[in-house]
Write a protein that binds this DNA or RNA. Structure first.
Lengths: 160, 160
DNA sequence: GCGAACATCTTAGTCATTAAGATAACGGCA
DNA sequence: TGCCGTTATCTTAATGACTAAGATGTTCGC
């Protein structure tokens, strides 16, 4: 609707398709994430936290708060929850005893990845059908999207 | 890690980059959506509902429930909320008085789109730099992702 | 070793959401 | 027509994640 002028109608329509497809994919990924959290008996925030920990190994409670956009109070109770469910261990940092170091229990990782497994396999299969140039185009596109998201989030006053 | 065999290391690394970028983008889009809902003083579910209504014009309460993955009870109170905030009108269907027809107030649409505006403009600008072939590749890719999401959601037992 | 800054925890309260069942309206069938 | 099963929404009570504000314990600079 806001469409910029374009000489060829095929181009304009392809662009509109892309805008629409992008929104739809974003929406579906949210629903997907929700479904996975449900299946694991977790909150979306819990999943976010565990994903983060899977990335970095271990982190302080404050870092978890930053990543999940939760208050420290909410993180405290989330960590109690995750600890009780055995997904995570938490202990005070001996070097700075104000801090709490949270660590994902490695033995639970497979369980967390299982719901994604089929999806990831299919994604790999899809990507294998692309040429290297095509893959690189997609990577560049996502990179630009990432920058746009971060810039907008910044502008919206979010922490992140 | 599950990577299929690949002759060229450049290809394997590009594929890994793409997998990572895809996950990161999905995550950022969630955070973004959350930030926008916050700014509008709405829930993510509210936003989902309003987006849906912007698409289809008007729908029954049950259709809204299906789209948002909420129970009918939750939809009832969500609609009361949105009605009170003036985003939506709700009236019984004269043809089938069990149904409630929910309609987005057109005059509020600009207000809902405003937070996306800059983002959408930037997206258009980005896409304008692509060739038609590149745009079509992206559209195809998103289409395949969409299918994968829907298949997995189905498998996870979700309604949708 | 004193005070400010920091990291986490506690407490009380809010609010979206769910589950279960109530209410009301439709549609078919005798 | 009148009854019954089904459908669509609403109500009620309870749950639980989350926030805000302030308490607690810890570090660091002076």
């Amino acid at each position: 609707m806001i469409a910029g002028m374009s000489s060829e109608p095929a181009r304009a329509s392809a662009m509109a398709d892309l805008m629409r497809a992008g929104r739809e994919t974003a929406r579906l990924s949210m629903v997907f994430r929700n479904a996975i959290a449900d299946r694991l008996g977790l909150t979306v925030s819990d999943l976010e936290c565990l994903d983060f920990l899977a990335d970095v190994g271990s982190a302080t409670a404050g870092q978890v708060a930053g990543r999940t956009n939760l208050t420290t109070g909410a993180v405290t109770s989330m960590l109690r929850r995750l600890q009780q469910a055995g997904f995570v261990t938490a202990e005070r940092d001996p070097a700075d005893r104000r801090r709490v170091i949270v660590t994902l229990r490695p033995e639970r990782i497979p369980e967390l990845e299982r719901p994604y497994e089929r999806f990831a396999e299919q994604a790999v299969r899809l990507i294998e059908g692309y040429s290297v140039e095509e893959v690189l185009l997609l990577v560049r596109h996502f990179g630009r999207m990432r920058e746009m998201y971060l810039a907008e989030l910044d502008r919206l006053g979010g922490a992140q």
